[in-house]
Protein backbone atom coordinates (compact mmCIF):
# COMPACT_ATOMS: atom_id res chain seq x y z
CA UNK A 1 0.00 0.00 0.00
CA UNK A 2 1.52 3.31 -1.10
CA UNK A 3 0.73 6.43 0.89
CA UNK A 4 -1.01 9.25 -1.02
CA UNK A 5 1.95 11.60 -0.54
CA UNK A 6 4.42 9.19 -2.06
CA UNK A 7 1.96 8.45 -4.83
CA UNK A 8 1.86 12.11 -5.73
CA UNK A 9 5.63 12.20 -5.61
CA UNK A 10 5.86 9.25 -7.98
CA UNK A 11 3.48 10.97 -10.34
CA UNK A 12 5.48 14.19 -10.31
CA UNK A 13 8.71 12.27 -10.84
CA UNK A 14 7.19 10.48 -13.82
CA UNK A 15 6.02 13.78 -15.28
CA UNK A 16 9.31 15.56 -14.56
CA UNK A 17 11.32 14.60 -17.70
CA UNK A 18 8.58 15.64 -20.11
CA UNK A 19 7.83 18.78 -18.12
CA UNK A 20 11.49 19.72 -18.01
CA UNK A 21 11.78 19.52 -21.78
CA UNK A 22 8.51 21.36 -22.27
CA UNK A 23 9.60 24.12 -19.94
CA UNK A 24 13.17 24.44 -21.22
CA UNK A 25 12.34 24.33 -24.92
CA UNK A 26 8.83 25.80 -25.13
CA UNK A 27 7.63 27.79 -22.16
CA UNK A 28 10.90 29.38 -21.14
CA UNK A 29 11.87 30.50 -24.69
CA UNK A 30 8.39 31.98 -25.17
CA UNK A 31 8.61 33.87 -21.92
CA UNK A 32 12.22 34.87 -22.59
CA UNK A 33 11.28 36.24 -26.02
CA UNK A 34 8.53 38.32 -24.50
CA UNK A 35 10.96 39.71 -21.91
CA UNK A 36 13.68 40.25 -24.44
CA UNK A 37 11.34 42.26 -26.63
CA UNK A 38 11.40 44.96 -23.96
CA UNK A 39 15.23 44.98 -23.80
CA UNK A 40 17.90 46.24 -26.15
CA UNK A 41 20.10 43.78 -28.04
CA UNK A 42 23.39 43.18 -26.21
CA UNK A 43 26.47 44.46 -28.07
CA UNK A 44 30.13 43.82 -27.11
CA UNK A 45 30.40 47.26 -25.45
CA UNK A 46 26.78 47.88 -24.48
CA UNK A 47 25.11 45.24 -22.36
CA UNK A 48 21.38 44.65 -22.74
CA UNK A 49 19.16 47.08 -20.84
CA UNK A 50 15.44 47.73 -20.42
CA UNK A 51 14.09 49.94 -23.20
CA UNK A 52 10.31 49.58 -22.71
CA UNK A 53 8.33 49.83 -25.95
CA UNK A 54 11.27 51.03 -28.05
CA UNK A 55 11.46 47.86 -30.11
CA UNK A 56 7.74 48.02 -30.86
CA UNK A 57 8.04 51.66 -31.87
CA UNK A 58 10.90 50.71 -34.14
CA UNK A 59 8.64 48.14 -35.80
CA UNK A 60 5.96 50.76 -36.45
CA UNK A 61 8.43 52.93 -38.31
CA UNK A 62 10.22 50.07 -40.09
CA UNK A 63 9.21 50.05 -43.79
CA UNK A 64 10.44 46.48 -44.28
CA UNK A 65 8.22 45.31 -41.44
CA UNK A 66 5.20 46.97 -43.06
CA UNK A 67 6.20 45.60 -46.44
CA UNK A 68 6.46 42.05 -45.12
CA UNK A 69 3.18 42.43 -43.23
CA UNK A 70 1.31 43.54 -46.37
CA UNK A 71 3.08 40.84 -48.36
CA UNK A 72 1.93 38.34 -45.79
CA UNK A 73 -1.66 39.55 -45.95
CA UNK A 74 -1.63 39.18 -49.74
CA UNK A 75 0.01 35.82 -49.36
CA UNK A 76 -2.72 34.71 -46.91
CA UNK A 77 -5.44 36.08 -49.15
CA UNK A 78 -3.94 34.35 -52.17
CA UNK A 79 -3.31 30.97 -50.60
CA UNK A 80 -6.08 30.36 -48.01
CA UNK A 81 -9.32 30.57 -50.04
CA UNK A 82 -7.73 28.99 -53.10
CA UNK A 83 -6.16 26.06 -51.28
CA UNK A 84 -9.31 25.36 -49.24
CA UNK A 85 -11.57 25.51 -52.28
CA UNK A 86 -9.19 23.29 -54.22
CA UNK A 87 -8.92 20.86 -51.30
CA UNK A 88 -12.71 20.59 -51.07
CA UNK A 89 -13.05 20.09 -54.80
CA UNK A 90 -10.39 17.38 -54.89
CA UNK A 91 -11.83 15.64 -51.82
CA UNK A 92 -15.31 15.52 -53.32
CA UNK A 93 -13.89 14.24 -56.55
CA UNK A 94 -11.81 11.43 -55.05
CA UNK A 95 -14.61 10.57 -52.60
CA UNK A 96 -16.79 9.40 -55.49
CA UNK A 97 -16.38 5.97 -56.92
CA UNK A 98 -14.06 6.48 -59.81
CA UNK A 99 -11.47 4.19 -61.32
CA UNK A 100 -8.02 4.73 -59.87
CA UNK A 101 -9.22 6.88 -57.00
CA UNK A 102 -6.56 5.50 -54.66
CA UNK A 103 -3.98 6.69 -57.14
CA UNK A 104 -5.63 10.11 -57.37
CA UNK A 105 -5.75 10.44 -53.58
CA UNK A 106 -2.10 9.50 -53.34
CA UNK A 107 -1.13 11.94 -56.08
CA UNK A 108 -2.95 14.79 -54.33
CA UNK A 109 -1.37 13.99 -51.00
CA UNK A 110 2.18 13.64 -52.33
CA UNK A 111 3.12 17.36 -52.06
CA UNK A 112 2.46 17.15 -48.33
CA UNK A 113 4.89 14.30 -47.76
CA UNK A 114 7.72 15.71 -49.85
CA UNK A 115 10.33 17.75 -47.96
CA UNK A 116 9.72 21.44 -48.56
CA UNK A 117 13.36 22.16 -49.43
CA UNK A 118 13.34 19.58 -52.25
CA UNK A 119 9.98 20.75 -53.50
CA UNK A 120 11.09 24.38 -53.51
CA UNK A 121 14.11 23.42 -55.59
CA UNK A 122 11.93 21.64 -58.13
CA UNK A 123 9.69 24.70 -58.41
CA UNK A 124 12.76 26.85 -58.65
CA UNK A 125 13.60 24.92 -61.80
CA UNK A 126 10.05 25.37 -63.12
CA UNK A 127 10.36 29.14 -62.70
CA UNK A 128 13.94 29.46 -63.99
CA UNK A 129 14.30 32.06 -66.76
CA UNK A 130 15.26 30.89 -70.26
CA UNK A 131 15.36 27.12 -69.74
CA UNK A 132 12.84 26.52 -66.89
CA UNK A 133 9.76 24.38 -67.51
CA UNK A 134 7.33 27.29 -67.64
CA UNK A 135 9.64 29.23 -69.95
CA UNK A 136 9.98 26.25 -72.29
CA UNK A 137 6.21 25.85 -72.50
CA UNK A 138 5.73 29.60 -72.92
CA UNK A 139 8.30 29.83 -75.71
CA UNK A 140 6.81 26.80 -77.45
CA UNK A 141 3.51 28.69 -77.47
CA UNK A 142 5.29 31.80 -78.72
CA UNK A 143 4.76 33.80 -75.51
CA UNK A 144 7.33 36.37 -74.40
CA UNK A 145 10.00 35.35 -71.90
CA UNK A 146 9.50 36.34 -68.26
CA UNK A 147 11.57 36.05 -65.09
CA UNK A 148 8.85 34.87 -62.72
CA UNK A 149 10.81 34.92 -59.47
CA UNK A 150 13.12 37.73 -60.47
CA UNK A 151 10.45 40.33 -61.15
CA UNK A 152 8.79 42.21 -58.31
CA UNK A 153 5.39 41.98 -60.02
CA UNK A 154 5.22 38.21 -60.24
CA UNK A 155 7.51 36.86 -57.51
CA UNK A 156 4.87 36.88 -54.76
CA UNK A 157 2.33 35.31 -57.13
CA UNK A 158 4.78 32.55 -58.01
CA UNK A 159 5.43 31.81 -54.34
CA UNK A 160 1.68 31.76 -53.69
CA UNK A 161 1.26 29.16 -56.44
CA UNK A 162 3.73 26.84 -54.78
CA UNK A 163 2.06 27.26 -51.39
CA UNK A 164 -1.39 26.44 -52.81
CA UNK A 165 0.00 23.36 -54.52
CA UNK A 166 1.54 22.25 -51.26
CA UNK A 167 -1.36 23.02 -48.92
CA UNK A 168 -4.35 21.85 -50.94
CA UNK A 169 -3.41 18.16 -50.78
CA UNK A 170 -2.91 18.34 -47.04
CA UNK A 171 -6.30 19.93 -46.42
CA UNK A 172 -7.90 17.47 -48.83
CA UNK A 173 -7.14 14.62 -46.44
CA UNK A 174 -9.21 16.30 -43.70
CA UNK A 175 -12.09 16.93 -46.06
CA UNK A 176 -11.91 13.39 -47.38
CA UNK A 177 -12.10 11.97 -43.86
CA UNK A 178 -15.05 14.23 -43.05
CA UNK A 179 -16.83 13.33 -46.28
CA UNK A 180 -16.50 9.65 -45.53
CA UNK A 181 -18.12 10.23 -42.16
CA UNK A 182 -21.27 11.53 -43.88
CA UNK A 183 -23.72 8.68 -44.28
CA UNK A 184 -24.36 7.83 -47.96
CA UNK A 185 -28.05 7.44 -47.06
CA UNK A 186 -28.24 11.24 -46.82
CA UNK A 187 -27.23 11.49 -50.48
CA UNK A 188 -29.91 8.96 -51.38
CA UNK A 189 -32.53 10.80 -49.36
CA UNK A 190 -31.59 14.09 -51.02
CA UNK A 191 -31.61 12.39 -54.40
CA UNK A 192 -35.13 11.07 -53.78
CA UNK A 193 -36.26 14.57 -52.89
CA UNK A 194 -35.00 15.81 -56.23
CA UNK A 195 -31.90 17.61 -55.03
CA UNK A 196 -29.25 18.10 -57.71
CA UNK A 197 -25.59 17.37 -57.02
CA UNK A 198 -25.05 21.09 -56.40
CA UNK A 199 -28.05 21.45 -54.10
CA UNK A 200 -26.89 18.42 -52.13
CA UNK A 201 -23.46 19.98 -51.78
CA UNK A 202 -24.79 23.40 -50.81
CA UNK A 203 -27.56 22.34 -48.44
CA UNK A 204 -26.14 19.12 -46.95
CA UNK A 205 -22.48 18.37 -47.61
CA UNK A 206 -21.03 21.83 -47.08
CA UNK A 207 -22.87 22.55 -43.81
CA UNK A 208 -21.87 19.15 -42.48
CA UNK A 209 -18.26 19.90 -43.40
CA UNK A 210 -18.21 23.18 -41.46
CA UNK A 211 -16.30 21.81 -38.45
CA UNK A 212 -13.61 20.64 -40.85
CA UNK A 213 -13.63 23.95 -42.68
CA UNK A 214 -13.11 25.81 -39.42
CA UNK A 215 -10.25 23.55 -38.45
CA UNK A 216 -8.66 23.80 -41.87
CA UNK A 217 -9.13 27.56 -41.98
CA UNK A 218 -7.33 28.12 -38.69
CA UNK A 219 -4.52 25.85 -39.80
CA UNK A 220 -4.31 27.63 -43.12
CA UNK A 221 -3.99 31.02 -41.43
CA UNK A 222 -1.27 29.75 -39.12
CA UNK A 223 0.56 28.15 -42.04
CA UNK A 224 0.32 31.32 -44.11
CA UNK A 225 1.99 33.33 -41.35
CA UNK A 226 4.71 30.90 -40.51
CA UNK A 227 5.76 30.18 -44.09
CA UNK A 228 9.51 30.52 -44.26
CA UNK A 229 11.23 27.48 -45.77
CA UNK A 230 10.31 27.83 -49.38
CA UNK A 231 10.92 31.59 -49.26
CA UNK A 232 14.46 30.90 -48.09
CA UNK A 233 15.08 28.42 -50.89
CA UNK A 234 13.32 30.23 -53.70
CA UNK A 235 13.72 33.99 -53.26
CA UNK A 236 15.32 34.92 -49.94
CA UNK A 237 12.66 37.58 -49.67
CA UNK A 238 13.68 39.27 -52.88
CA UNK A 239 13.55 40.93 -55.24
CA UNK A 240 13.50 44.15 -53.20
CA UNK A 241 11.56 42.49 -50.36
CA UNK A 242 8.74 41.59 -52.78
CA UNK A 243 8.41 38.15 -51.20
CA UNK A 244 9.54 38.97 -47.67
CA UNK A 245 6.94 37.41 -45.37
CA UNK A 246 6.78 38.16 -41.65
CA UNK A 247 8.37 34.94 -40.50
CA UNK A 248 11.14 35.30 -43.04
CA UNK A 249 11.79 38.88 -41.94
CA UNK A 250 11.93 37.78 -38.30
CA UNK A 251 14.42 35.10 -39.26
CA UNK A 252 16.49 37.66 -41.12
CA UNK A 253 16.47 40.18 -38.27
CA UNK A 254 17.24 37.55 -35.69
CA UNK A 255 19.82 35.37 -37.38
CA UNK A 256 21.30 37.44 -40.20
CA UNK A 257 21.40 40.85 -38.52
CA UNK A 258 21.58 39.35 -34.99
CA UNK A 259 19.22 42.01 -33.65
CA UNK A 260 17.59 39.45 -31.36
CA UNK A 261 15.65 41.89 -29.22
CA UNK A 262 13.94 43.43 -32.24
CA UNK A 263 13.25 39.95 -33.61
CA UNK A 264 11.67 39.06 -30.28
CA UNK A 265 9.40 42.09 -30.51
CA UNK A 266 8.38 41.16 -34.07
CA UNK A 267 7.67 37.59 -32.92
CA UNK A 268 5.42 38.89 -30.16
CA UNK A 269 3.53 41.03 -32.66
CA UNK A 270 3.06 38.02 -34.95
CA UNK A 271 1.79 35.81 -32.13
CA UNK A 272 -0.66 38.42 -30.84
CA UNK A 273 -1.94 38.87 -34.39
CA UNK A 274 -2.45 35.14 -34.93
CA UNK A 275 -4.19 34.78 -31.58
CA UNK A 276 -6.57 37.62 -32.45
CA UNK A 277 -7.37 36.09 -35.82
CA UNK A 278 -8.00 32.67 -34.29
CA UNK A 279 -10.31 34.16 -31.64
CA UNK A 280 -12.16 36.07 -34.31
CA UNK A 281 -12.57 32.94 -36.43
CA UNK A 282 -13.89 30.91 -33.54
CA UNK A 283 -16.20 33.67 -32.38
CA UNK A 284 -17.61 34.27 -35.81
CA UNK A 285 -17.76 30.77 -37.20
CA UNK A 286 -18.56 28.75 -34.10
CA UNK A 287 -22.17 29.89 -34.25
CA UNK A 288 -22.52 28.68 -37.81
CA UNK A 289 -20.91 25.32 -37.29
CA UNK A 290 -22.96 22.21 -36.72
CA UNK A 291 -21.10 19.62 -34.69
CA UNK A 292 -22.37 16.06 -34.91
Amino acid sequence: MIRPASRALTAWLLLAPAMTFLFVFTHWPALASLMESFMSTARPRRPSRFVGMDNYQQALSDPVFWKSLTNNLWFALGTIPASIALALLMAIWVNDRLPGRTFARMAYFTPTILPMIAVANIWLFFFTPQYGLIEQIASALGLPSHNWLGSGDTALGAVIMVAIWKEAGFFMIFYLAALQAISPVLAEAANLEGASRWTYFRRVQFPLLMPTTLFVLINAVINAFRMVDHIIVMTRGGPDNATALLMFYIYQVGFNFWDTAYAAALTTILIVMLALIALLQYGWLERRVHYQ
Binding site: S183, V185, L192, E193, Q292
Partner: peptide, 19 residues
Protein backbone atom coordinates in the same frame (compact mmCIF):
# COMPACT_ATOMS: atom_id res chain seq x y z
CA UNK B 1 -34.38 9.28 -61.83
CA UNK B 2 -35.68 8.70 -58.29
CA UNK B 3 -37.06 12.22 -57.99
CA UNK B 4 -39.12 11.85 -61.17
CA UNK B 5 -40.89 8.69 -60.09
CA UNK B 6 -43.36 10.20 -57.67
CA UNK B 7 -42.23 8.24 -54.64
CA UNK B 8 -41.26 9.04 -51.10
CA UNK B 9 -39.19 6.86 -48.86
CA UNK B 10 -38.50 6.26 -45.19
CA UNK B 11 -35.06 4.82 -44.58
CA UNK B 12 -34.09 2.32 -41.91
CA UNK B 13 -31.71 4.87 -40.39
CA UNK B 14 -34.28 7.65 -41.08
CA UNK B 15 -31.65 9.64 -43.08
CA UNK B 16 -32.53 12.91 -41.36
CA UNK B 17 -30.20 15.80 -42.12
CA UNK B 18 -28.38 16.32 -38.82
CA UNK B 19 -27.72 20.04 -39.29
Amino acid sequence: APAQRGISMVFQSYALFPH
